[in-house]
Each structure stands twice: as C-alpha cells, then as structure tokens.
Amino acid sequence: MSTDPSIETLRIREAAAGDLDGIARIYGTLWCNTLRNRGDIEDAELAARFNVAMQLQDSPIALVAESDGEVIAACMVGVFDDGAPRPNPAWQQTYDELLAQATARAETADAKLEGSLFGDSREKATSRRFAATGNPYAQGQVNLIIIDPAWQGRGLGRRLIDAARGHLRDLGCSAFFLMTDNQSDYAFYDHIGMERIAEDHSQDTGDGFTVYIYGDAC
C-alpha cells in the first residue's frame, strides 16, 4: 500500500510526561478490550497506563506521532550496553508509582487481569534473555510500537520504525531487534523486510504461543 500523503505531514517527536494518557488510550484500545467489555474500566486503564510506563522507562528513545495535537501512535526503543538495558530516568518515578498500584491490584486479580497487568513484563524478561546472549542484533530493541486503529494501514508503522533507526544510528547502534508473537500481526515485519532471527517457546502453556524475534540493520 502506498503511503498516504497525510502521513508525511504528521509530527513525530519525543514523548513528554503529558503523553502518557494518550499513549495508554491507544494501548487500551488495542489490548485491554476484554477487561473493558466485562465492565472493568478502571482495571483496563490501570493495565494500559502501567504497561506503557514500563516500556517508557526502559526506552531511551521514546517517540510519539501526533495529528492536530492528539497522540495517534508511539514507538518506544531500548538500547543495550553489553546486554544490559539502558533506562530512561525521566519515566522512572511514574513507572514506580504504577508498579505499586499494579502489584497491589494483582493480589486480588483473576487470571485475565493478572495477564493484562503483567504479560508484557514476562515478554520483557524474554527480550532481556535474548539481549544477554550477545547476539549482534541485540544493540537496540523496538520495545513497543502502537498505532491508533484509525491510522493503521497508511504507512505510519514503517515511518516510525525508520525514525527509530535514525535515532539508534545516532547512538552508535548498527542493528536492532523486536519481538512479536504468532497471535499478533507479525506479517507486517515480513512485509517491511525484517528477518525472523529466532523463536521463543518459553511462554507456551499448551496453546502453541510462540514469540518471534525479528532483526534488521539500522
């Protein structure tokens, strides 16, 4: 699909403190609907805000795309120093506060809510294990890329990843990776020419869940 001309006029900038709710709105629309549909609105909002904050504090490169002042997409990118993730201290306090809220809520959560709160944390552990292997792609990682459904399919995902490449190159990285899974739209990464470099089955509980790791040059 050709790039929509309007995409080229969007502003891509560094994420600021006031963007958390806008990013969480997109995250919640994509991944918290089960909670929302059963009436757990506050839990859905907590899960979205906590998981976004977790990715932000782990992403020295945190980008948002906005249209008419509204956040419509985000791309969060981590950097590894000898296998260790480099933090983003600007988001640490926000993350700590939301972690405390999520941990307290998890004490009485059912399996669906617990998974919504901490599923991304388990995937984070998988990515860190991969980075610790010293794989040449493990210099940077696209931790999270999310796009408002109304803006999907118009070239914005490719544009955000290209912006991430540029920032990674500026930090001295020559390659990066990202993680997706067989229940997500992994074909997008095939479409833009990334290489599937590994698979991880550690989160398979009998349902065939497989994490796919894609890599590419910066």
Rank of each mutant, 00 (worst) to 15 (best):
M1N: 04
T3G: 04
D4C: 03
S6F: 14
S6V: 13
I7F: 03
I7M: 13
T9K: 13
L10V: 05
A16D: 07
A17Q: 15
G18N: 11
G22V: 02
Y27G: 00
G28D: 04
L30F: 00
W31M: 02
C32W: 00
T34I: 15
R36V: 04
R36T: 09
N37M: 14
D40L: 13
I41M: 07
D43R: 15
D43G: 15
A47V: 02
F50G: 03
V52D: 00
L56Y: 01
L56D: 00
D58G: 06
D58F: 02
D58L: 05
S59M: 09
L63K: 01
S67H: 15
G69H: 05
V71T: 09
I72L: 01
I72S: 02
A73H: 01
A73V: 02
G78Q: 07
V79T: 07
V79S: 02
F80V: 10
P89W: 00
Q92I: 03
Q92L: 05
T94C: 10
Q101R: 13
A104V: 11
R105L: 11
R105Y: 10
A106T: 09
T108L: 11
T108R: 12
A109Q: 06
D110F: 08
K112N: 12
K112V: 14
G115M: 09
F118V: 04
G119L: 03
G119C: 02
E123Q: 12
S127I: 09
R128I: 11
R128N: 15
R128C: 12
R129A: 12
F130K: 08
A131N: 15
T133N: 09
T133Q: 10
N135S: 13
P136L: 06
Y137M: 12
Y137V: 10
Y137T: 08
Q141A: 09
Q141P: 01
V142P: 04
N143L: 04
N143P: 02
I147R: 00
W151I: 00
G153D: 10
G155P: 10
L156P: 00
L160M: 14
D162N: 08
A164G: 04
H167W: 06
L168E: 06
R169V: 13
D170A: 15
G172P: 03
C173Y: 10
F176Y: 15
L178Y: 05
M179S: 10
T180H: 05
D181Y: 03
Y186V: 01
Y186T: 01
G193A: 06
M194R: 11
I197E: 08
A198K: 07
A198Q: 08
E199R: 09
H201Y: 09
S202M: 11
D204M: 07
G206Y: 10
G208D: 02
T210M: 06
V211Y: 04
Y212D: 15
I213M: 14
Y214G: 06
Y214D: 05
D216E: 14
